[in-house]
Structures are given as structure tokens and as C-alpha cells.
């Protein structure tokens, strides 16, 4: 395929590059033999290539689970690093099959950009970090502060809203990337650094003296982050959505990567049987085979295992479960029933 296209290019013709075929996303993925996952250009814990060029992280783990569900191979996925400017166009143009890249679910993106947010895999919110020596313990005391803020993000708007609502003023110090923000903040160019709390936590963990900095308790916005697919292919959206739900439900029901094989041979909980494909034939309804969820769980573990391995409190990122605990534990994770 690739060669033919190259020949076509050498001959400077795009018209002969191939005959347009109306294929569903699943058919395209199957024909290609791998999933193409839009990923972050590099965010600690969520998605970044390691020293060997192998992508690792929380969002990356979800893509691997999806690849395992489709192909029985968590490595049958190629990651396309996307910036926040290119991510939606890349998805809309079909460059990637699914976007799993810290993307906030908002009205405009869902409705106007013709995207489908299939769920939330991480509930985040915007917070503030200040040096401890500033002597501030609440965001309400930040009147007149200089704030390092990444331009072109929803955090910029949230910041303006929060300060206006509370009748405070601030002076923005616009920065382009998280790395630059860290430099500016540490150099004292701004009193406050604001972005998503998860990113603040991973930034702070990288500081020479993490304890000299404080993340204020106020969370000023809702940032539900989750995987995104294109509008118009509901079967594909179902596959992505229920793979996510399968990981979440697996944690709730106690299915782990360690015991999934054992539970497949028999469990007295009928819902476990339906997830793992011993009962109900749910995989076939998605256009996959019945083992799909069992393979996804075996590949990366359930939601809790994935969280703990990539961003949990045992990792350098050190995030607590917080809102991302199961609904039975006081969190927001709530997978619809497998029935």
C-alpha cells in the first residue's frame, strides 16, 4: 500500500493514490492491522515515550487496552504525538482513530467540532501552586498576584472567570509550554502557577525542593478528560466507550490482570461472566469476539491497576485517586451495567 502511494507521489499525482472506499473505522483499523492513537507530545505520567521509544502512561495504557481488545496485542498500536493545536484536526481528518490525550470534554468540542467524547478517564480540575514562603493558604488571598498561565487553553479562561467572580485582579505572565511555565515560576517571574492539578502535582514532583511549594486547596474548574472519537461512526464509539467502561467495571468487580484468566473459567458473579465473555456474547454485538474485555484487562490491568502503575501515589507523579475513585469509594467513576 505504502509503496504504491509513494510511486504515485513520485509521479506527482494524488488522484491515483487509491480509490475512495467507505469503510467503517473498525474495518479500517482491522485492514491496517494496528490502531492509530492520538497521544500527547509528552506529559509526565499520561503519555510520553520512554528511553527506548516505547510509549508509556495513563492515556497510552488506555490505547493499549483498546488495541488488545481488537487485536489481542497491546502493541498493535502506533502513537501519533499531537499538540493541543493539531489534535482535533488530526482526529477529524482520520489521521488518528482515537484521541486519548488529556482532552477536556466541553460543549463546543462535543457539539460544534463534531467529536464524540465517549467518557471520562480522568476527572481533573484547575488549581494553583504558590511558593510556601508567599504565605498564602487560599486562592482567595491571591489578589494582585502575577500568574503564569499557558496561553490558548481553557485554563486561561477559567482563571479570568475565577478572579472576576471573586472581585480580584491579577497580572498574567503568558507562557507557551509547561516546561517554560516551570522555569518562569521557579525563576520568580510569577507568584502563582496555574494549570490542571494533575499537571501541577507532576511539576512539583520535579522541583529541587518540592516541599517549598504548595498546591492551594481550591479547584476552580471542571476538567473531565477522556478519549475522543469522530462523530458518525457509532459502532466505533461503542467499542472505545465500552472498553473504557470494562476497565472501570473490572475494578469495581475485582477483576485484575492477575485473576482474569482464573475468573474466565468460572465466577459466581454473572456480570463478571458477561464482561469476560463467558456469558451473553457481548463481544459479537460490538463486532469483536467475546474475549475482548478480558484481553484488555489482561493487557493493562483494570482502571485501578493502570492508575496505580502510571500516575498513582506510588509513582513519582503521586496523584491520589480523589474524584477518580469508584463511586462506591466516594469518587465519580461509574460504569453502566454490563447487561
Amino acid at each position: 500500500m505504502k509503496k504504491n502511494v509513494l510511486f504515485g507521489t513520485f509521479a506527482a499525482s494524488m488522484l491515483v493514490a487509491g480509490i475512495a472506499q467507505a469503510q467503517s473505522t473498525l474495518e479500517q483499523v482491522m485492514a491496517r492491522g494496528e490502531l492509530v492513537c492520538g497521544s500527547n507530545t509528552g506529559q509526565a505520567g499520561f503519555g510520553a515515550p520512554d528511553a527506548n521509544g516505547v510509549w508509556q502512561g495513563f492515556d497510552v495504557g488506555f490505547c493499549r487496552a483498546l488495541a488488545a481488545a481488537i487485536f489481542n496485542d497491546p502493541n498493535a498500536v502506533s502513537f501519533v504525538p499531537l499538540t493541543s493545536q493539531t489534535r482535533f484536526s488530526a482526529l477529524a481528518s482520520g489521521e488518528v482513530d482515537v484521541l486519548a490525550r488529556n482532552t477536556t470534554w466541553t460543549f463546543v468540542r462535543d457539539v460544534d467540532l463534531n467529536l464524540t467524547f465517549v467518557g471520562t478517564n480522568y476527572y481533573d480540575g484547575q488549581g494553583f501552586m504558590v511558593p510556601r514562603e508567599l504565605g498564602v493558604s487560599s486562592a482567595r488571598e491571591l489578589d494582585g498576584a502575577t500568574v503564569c498561565i499557558e496561553t490558548g487553553t481553557t485554563t486561561e479562561l477559567n482563571l479570568a472567570d475565577y478572579f472576576r467572580v471573586n472581585g480580584m485582579s491579577y497580572e498574567p505572565v503568558p507562557v507557551d509550554t509547561a516546561a517554560e511555565a516551570q522555569q518562569q515560576y521557579l525563576a520568580g517571574a510569577c507568584d502563582v502557577y496555574t494549570t490542571d492539578v494533575s499537571a501541577l502535582a507532576s511539576s512539583r514532583a520535579a522541583f529541587a525542593e518540592p516541599d517549598a511549594h504548595l498546591i492551594l486547596p481550591e479547584v476552580v474548574s471542571k476538567e473531565p478528560l477522556g478519549p475522543v472519537v469522530r462523530h458518525g461512526d457509532d459502532n466505533w464509539a461503542d467499542i472505545v466507550q465500552w472498553t473504557l467502561f470494562a476497565l472501570i467495571a473490572a475494578e469495581e468487580l475485582g477483576i485484575t490482570s492477575a485473576n482474569v484468566e482464573e475468573l474466565k473459567t468460572g465466577s459466581n458473579n454473572p456480570e463478571v461472566g458477561r464482561i469476560l465473555g463467558t456469558d451473553g456474547g457481548f463481544g459479537a454485538m460490538l463486532g469483536l469476539d467475546d474475549d475482548w474485555a478480558a484481553r484488555a484487562i489482561a493487557a493493562v490491568g483494570n482502571y485501578g491497576e493502570l492508575f496505580a502503575a502510571t500516575i498513582g501515589d506510588q509513582t513519582p507523579i503521586g496523584l491520589a485517586r480523589g474524584l477518580n475513585a469508584q463511586w462506591t469509594q466516594g469518587g465519580l467513576l461509574y460504569a453502566p451495567p454490563f447487561r
Partner: peptide
């Protein structure tokens, strides 16, 4: 940007046209 994003709209779906090229 048009090389990386726009071009894909004009190409038939499923065509992989090497990004580096």
C-alpha cells in the same frame, strides 16, 4: 499545518501518505 492536516481531507480515506514526504 496543511501538509499534516489539510491534505488528509483531500486524499481518499485510508490512504497513508507518508508525513515526512
Amino acid at each position: 499545518f496543511s501538509a499534516s492536516l489539510l491534505l488528509n481531507y483531500f486524499l481518499p480515506p485510508g490512504t497513508t501518505f507518508d508525513l515526512i514526504l
